[in-house]
Design a binder for these strands. Structure first.
Length: 250
DNA sequence: TACCATT
């Protein structure tokens, strides 16, 4: 079976949808069934966690025609799929490419370590020394909550902040102009940081006041939280904690 | 502006 090139015309351009808020149990087939009422689906995908294989609750649907995608947005955005408890978000997908490179560049050039001489780096140094002592001599101190280690191997589905590939940290009270580099700079000194994200308003591109940081090791994440929660960044006091699932309530 | 997710 060869795959034929599809004609590139305005009618089929930008017919690709990004879907979020999907039930974790929804399969690709079920996703297609949901959207197929609006037109011919060319491709579909559900993104999964690389470690656990569990759905990340987001996916893509590419329709044959733009008008089909538009109708699907009208019909499904903000709606609950059959059996779902939460509504899904359906919007046109961003163009791939441009955005991921920004994070990589940030990672390469910001050099998370050694940018923060001062109290934070000193605490991080203190903690690393503490870890070395622990490994070398079995010394266990308040900085090394090794009791959690038994949990880290359990795929951690129900452990707050743990998505399977690291420990996800919620950072609140970032300034509107905050960007990813500040997160690398703040958290990098505490250990291995695999991902940072500033959540922005789609229209204004201003930070919505919060972001996320993923760290590989529990003890380093815990140290970063203990050190950075309440930290004054500019004229704001940050709130830093492991990420939870539920939306903030009262 | 209190809990992401962009193949």
């Amino acid at each position: 079976m060869v795959s034929y090139a599809r004609p590139s015309s305005a009618s089929i351009r930008d017919a690709n949808l990004y879907v979020s808020g999907l039930p974790k149990t929804m399969t690709q087939k079920e996703l297609e069934q949901l959207f197929s009422q609006y037109g011919r689906i060319i491709t579909s995908r559900i993104l999964v966690d690389q470690v656990t294989g569990i759905s990340r609750g987001v996916g893509f649907i590419r329709f044959d025609k733009r008008i089909e995608a538009e109708e699907a947005i009208k019909g499904l955005n903000g709606q609950k799929p059959p059996g779902a408890t939460e509504p899904i978000t359906v919007k046109f997908a961003n163009n791939p490419s441009q955005k991921t490179n920004q994070a990589i560049l940030s990672q390469l050039y910001q050099s998370p370590n050694r940018r923060y001489p001062g109290p934070l780096a000193q605490q991080a140094q203190r903690f690393r020394l503490d870890n070395l002592l622990n490994m070398a001599y079995g010394v266990k101190s308040r900085f090394s909550p090794m009791t959690i280690d038994g949990m880290t191997s359990l795929a951690g589905i129900n452990i707050p902040g743990h998505p399977g590939t690291g420990w996800c940290i919620f950072v609140y009270n970032l300034a509107p102009d905050a960007d990813e580099s500040i997160l690398w700079q703040m958290f990098g000194p505490f250990g291995a940081v695999t991902n940072v994200k500033v959540i922005r308003d789609f229209n204004t591109n201003k930070c919505k006041g919060f972001g996320f940081v993923t760290m590989t090791n529990y003890d380093e994440a815990a140290m970063a939280i203990a050190s950075l929660n309440g930290y004054r960044l500019g004229d704001r006091v940050l709130q830093v904690s492991f990420k939870t699932n539920k939306t903030h309530k009262a």
